[in-house]
């Protein structure tokens, strides 16, 4: 697992370098284009500030009221048997419906348990490896004007469960090896 973490550390610098090299070979003014693109990133982040305030506030209220602890302790007996820490369950369920609400819960877990704890690692990997399946499928179905989606939801659920299982296994390996 140490090797996997080492590879992780290399991916971003190497990808950065490859993009810049490819740009220079193709005679792109790499710095000018970088600055241009960075402006888009600024705009994107500024546009999500209100969303994040709204959601972090709502999750903050739930956390402070003790309600999240209540859910965790109520679900703890079930989830402990399958090796999944109970505080993650609300996140994994909400993740399938709303990506911004899931972000709020992920940040709450980071604050409460730490980014590099087992819970923090599972939250990091699982939110990266899963999608808002219900939301995306419904929006895309409306676009294609279809009402019967046949095996779409079954496939999406199976692949989500597979992603979650893989996340739990990988995060457990990471936290025990370091």
């Amino acid at each position: 697992m140490k090797a996997v973490v080492a590879v992780s550390t290399y991916i971003i610098p190497v990808v950065m370098m490859l993009i810049v090299i490819h740009g220079m070979i193709k005679n792109v003014n790499v710095y000018d284009e970088f600055v241009n693109g960075a402006k888009d990133g600024m705009k994107t982040v500024v546009s999500i500030v209100p969303t994040l305030i709204g959601l972090m506030m709502a999750v903050g209220i739930l956390r402070a009221s003790g309600f999240l602890d209540l859910i965790s302790s109520a679900l703890g007996n079930v989830t402990d048997k399958i090796g999944l820490p109970a505080p993650l369950l609300p996140l994994l369920l909400v993740r399938m419906f709303s990506s911004s609400a899931a972000t709020g819960l992920t940040l709450d877990l980071f604050k409460e348990y730490g980014t590099d704890s087992l819970i923090g690692l599972i939250a990091s990997i699982a939110t990266s490896a899963t999608e808002t399946i219900f939301f995306t499928i419904s929006v895309y179905s409306v676009a294609a004007k279809i009402t019967k989606t046949r095996w779409t939801l079954a496939g999406a659920l199976i692949s989500t469960v597979a992603g979650i299982v893989a996340s739990v296994v990988l995060a457990t390996l990471m936290s025990t090896s370091s």
Binding site: V4, T9, F110, S124, S128, A129, T160, G163
Partner: peptide, 21 residues
């Protein structure tokens, strides 16, 4: 949120997303 290695999850996340795909 103060991770000692924020990018440590990149490779595991790729593996997990590959598994689901």
């Amino acid at each position: 949120y103060g991770s000692t290695n924020p990018t440590a999850v990149v490779a595991p996340a790729i593996i997990a997303t590959l598994v689901s795909t």
